[in-house]
Design a protein around this nucleic acid. Structure first.
Lengths: 328, 328
DNA sequence: CTGAAAGCGCTTACAG
DNA sequence: CTGAAAGCGCTTACAG
C-alpha cells in the first residue's frame, strides 16, 4: 500500500538516500546527471514524499488548521475561499474542520489538530469561549477571526456594535418610525454585539426583537411574527444577510412592499445580497478578506514578525445602500 | 518551539516511553497508577501527539484530501459540509484545497496532498481531465465527485443529461413555446451534459443559448441578453441555481413577471432556492449528500470493502416545482 | 505489567 | 559532489 520511498529511488539510481533527497529537493550540491537520473526514476515510480516523515524531521508541517463553527451558506464559502487563496499563494495546506456546536467540541478538535499543524485559525463566536487556547501545545500560534477571545488581543474582529448602530441610524434616516430587529442567537458573541449596538440608538420603548439563528428560515419566521404585531414595524434590521433573505420572502408573500412599506437592512454583504429582490442594503464586512487577512496574520506570526505588526485588526462594517431601504 | 513529547512525559513519570505511549493510547496493559500518572502529566504539559510521527509509524494519516475546483457560493458550502459531517463522524481530518483553475493545477495539488492523506476526494469537472490519477502514489484511493473521469468507473456522479431533459420537458409542460438556455461554461463537463440533455428535447430550430459561468452575474447577463431578442423566450433553464438567481433579478428589473411572462428553472436546489422571489423551481441534486456519500464511498474503499459495494453511484436529479415555473 | 530496541521515511550536519 | 550516520517522535513485537 505504501508508495515508493527515497530508499527505492536511491537503490534504483545507485546513489545514497542523501543524494536522492538532495536531487528531489532541487539542491545544487548534486551532480547534474545524478539529479537527472533521480528525478526520472522518481517520476516513473510516482514518488511522493511522505509528509509525516518530512514534518517530523523539519519540525514544521506547512499546514494550517482552520476551525469554523459551521460551514453553511455563502458566508462560510467566502471565508474559506479567502483563507484558501491566501494559503495557496504561500504553498500552505489547510486542515479544515467545521460544525463544532460548542466550545468544548472546539477544544477537542483544536487538540486533535494541534499535532498536525504549524498554527491555528479559529473562528469560535460562542459567548462562553473563555480559554480556547488552554490545552493546546504551548507555543502553537493561534489567530482568531471574529471571536470573543480575540476581540482584545490580536486576531481579526468586526466592529459589530458599530455596525448595529449604523444599521439603526440608517433606518432612522430613511424615515422609519417603528424599527425592529431580527437578531442572531444570543449565545453568539457577534450577534449580541450587533443587537446591543442597534438597540443603543433608541431610547424609550425598545424596538421589538425576534431572536433568529442566522438561517434564512429564522429570518422568514422573524418577519412573519413582526407582521402580526399591532404596531407593525416599518424597518427591519436582520443581523445577517441570510436572515434578511428569508425576511424578504416573508414580506413578499404577505404582499408587503420593500422598501415602501418596510425597509430592510442586512449584515455581511455576501454575494447574493446584490441579487435579492429588491437588492439588499447591508453592512459590508468583506468576508473574503476576513479569511485572507486572518491567514496572513497567522503567517506573520509564524514567521516571527515584529509583534507590533501582529497587533490585531478591527474591521469597520461599511453601509452599502441598495433598494431594500431606499425610501423616497 | 516544539511542544512536549512522549519522552518528556516518560521522564517525568519515571516510566519508559513505551508505557507512556500505552497509557496515552488507553491500552489496558498498563498499571492503573501508571496510567493515571502519565495522563495527569500529559495534561499538565499540554501534550499533543505528533501527527507526523504517528502517521509515519502507523502508515496511515487518518486524513482525507479534498480537492475542489472552486469554493464559491452555497453549492460548495453544502458539499464541504456534507464531507465534513461524514468525516467528523469517523474521526477523520480533512485536508481541503479549492480553486484550482485547470487539470494541471489539480494534478500538482493532488501530488502535494498525496504524501499526507489516506485517500483523495476529487471534484474536477473539467472536460479535459483525462488522467488525473497518473502521477499519484500508486495505491492512493481516489473517489471522484461529479467528474468526467469518474463517470464510468466508480465515484459519485449526477445524471446531468437527464436533468437537462427534465428541465426541458417541464418547460414544455408549462406551456412554454420559446425555451432558452443559460448554460454553464463549455469547458465544464457537467455543464455540457446539461446543455446536451436540454437541447435534445427540441427538434427544429434550436433554442437560444447563452453561455454563462455558473455565477449570479452571468445569469443576470444571460437574461438581459434574452430580453433583447426579437422572439423573446417565455421559459429559461439556468444550468445552476446561482445563475437562476441572477436571471430572476434581471427579469424583475425589466418588469417581466415570473412565471407569467417567463418561467424559470434552475439546477442544484441549493438552500437559497426556496427563498428567491419567486421561489425557484429547480432540479434537486442533494448537494450535501453528494459530499457525504463521496466521503463514505472513499472510506469504504479504504477499509477494503467488497468491490461490488464500491461500484459508483449516479444520482438522478429530481424536479422540485416552485412558483418560478408555475403557469396557470 | 514493563522496558529496550527496532524501525517508519526523511533531512542534514559531518567528514571526505 | 557524495555517503554513512544520527535523529525527528512515535508504536509495537519481543523478551522478560
Amino acid at each position: 500500500m505504501a508508495g515508493a520511498t527515497l530508499k527505492d529511488i536511491a537503490r534504483e539510481a545507485n546513489v545514497s538516500i542523501a543524494s536522492a533527497s538532495r536531487a528531489i529537493n532541487g539542491l545544487d550540491n548534486v551532480a547534474d546527471d545524478v539529479k537527472q537520473r533521480v528525478l526520472e526514476i522518481a517520476k516513473r515510480l510516482r514518488y511522493v514524499p511522505h509528509g509525516g516523515a518530512r514534518s517530523l524531521v523539519m519540525s514544521r508541517t506547512n499546514t494550517i488548521g482552520v476551525l469554523l463553527p459551521d460551514i453553511y451558506g455563502e458566508f462560510f464559502a467566502e471565508i474559506i475561499r479567502g483563507i484558501d487563496v491566501a494559503a495557496r499563494a504561500r504553498g500552505l495546506h489547510l486542515l479544515v474542520s467545521g460544525s463544532h456546536g460548542n466550545p468544548d467540541e472546539a477544544l477537542s478538535i483544536m487538540r486533535a489538530m494541534g499535532g498536525r499543524v504549524d498554527g491555528l485559525l479559529v473562528m469560535s463566536p460562542f459567548v462562553e469561549s473563555h480559554d480556547l487556547a488552554s490545552a493546546l501545545p504551548l507555543n502553537l500560534p493561534v489567530v482568531t477571526i471574529a471571536s470573543q477571545i480575540g476581540a482584545g488581543r490580536g486576531g481579526i474582529s468586526v466592529d459589530n456594535f458599530g455596525g448595529g448602530v449604523t444599521a439603526a441610524r440608517h433606518l432612522c434616516e430613511q424615515g422609519c418610525r417603528r424599527p425592529a430587529l431580527i437578531s442572531g442567537p444570543s449565545r453568539n458573541f457577534e450577534a449580541e454585539e450587533r443587537r446591543r449596538g442597534f438597540l443603543s440608538v433608541f431610547d424609550g420603548e425598545p424596538p421589538p426583537v425576534f431572536e433568529g439563528d442566522f438561517t434564512e428560515e429564522s429570518g422568514y419566521s422573524g418577519a412573519k411574527s413582526f407582521l402580526t404585531l399591532a404596531e407593525r414595524p416599518d424597518g427591519i434590521f436582520a443581523a445577517n444577510d441570510m436572515m434578511a433573505v428569508g425576511c424578504l420572502l416573508a414580506l413578499r408573500e404577505a404582499g408587503v412592499s420593500v422598501p415602501e412599506d418596510i425597509a430592510v437592512v442586512g449584515f455581511d454583504d455576501i454575494p447574493i445580497a446584490r441579487f435579492t429582490s429588491p437588492p439588499l442594503t447591508t453592512l459590508r464586512v468583506g468576508v473574503f478578506d476576513l479569511g485572507r487577512r486572518g491567514l496572513e496574520m497567522l503567517v506573520a506570526t509564524l514567521e516571527g514578525e515584529d509583534e507590533t505588526t501582529t497587533q490585531g485588526i478591527i474591521v469597520a462594517p461599511e453601509l452599502v445602500r441598495r433598494e431594500s431601504s431606499r425610501h423616497k
